[in-house]
């Protein structure tokens, strides 16, 4: 069964992203929302860890949160809007929000 993991906390000073990557299955995906999009900050350690995992088409980020924070997802995550978020939630068997 596939899981969409949704993160919303900044990866700096919080280990949700790290723990999520630990239990991420091979068909699971990650969606970054809110401050979690800071994980895509160029030159940062979280961005390096994400690239290492080679998630390719399994890493998403919410477009409006990227824009608000001036974060460019290019080459690592796919920017999506809310309708695509809904579509993703349906495509995966379950959604796990890291509250």
């Amino acid at each position: 069964m596939t899981t969409l993991h949704v993160l919303s906390h900044s990866p700096f000073g919080d280990n949700r992203l790290a723990s999520c990557l630990r239990l991420l299955g091979n068909a699971d995906a990650v969606l970054l929302t809110g401050d979690a999009v800071y994980a895509l900050q160029p030159g940062s350690e979280p961005r390096r860890q994400l690239s290492e995992r080679r998630l390719a088409t399994r890493l998403f980020a919410l477009e409006e949160d990227l824009q608000a924070r001036a974060i460019d997802p290019a080459g690592l995550a796919l920017a999506i809007d809310y309708p695509a978020f809904v579509e993703l939630s349906i495509r995966f068997d379950k959604v796990n929000s890291w509250l």
């Binding site: 069964m1 899981t3 239990l23 091979n26 699971d28 379950k94 796990n96 929000s97 509250l99």
Partner: peptide
């Protein structure tokens, strides 16, 4: 670590 992702996989729903 490998057993963790297998565990999450096994349940219908997960809440963190």
């Amino acid at each position: 670590e490998a057993e963790l992702s297998a565990l999450v996989d096994r349940y219908d729903q997960v809440i963190t």
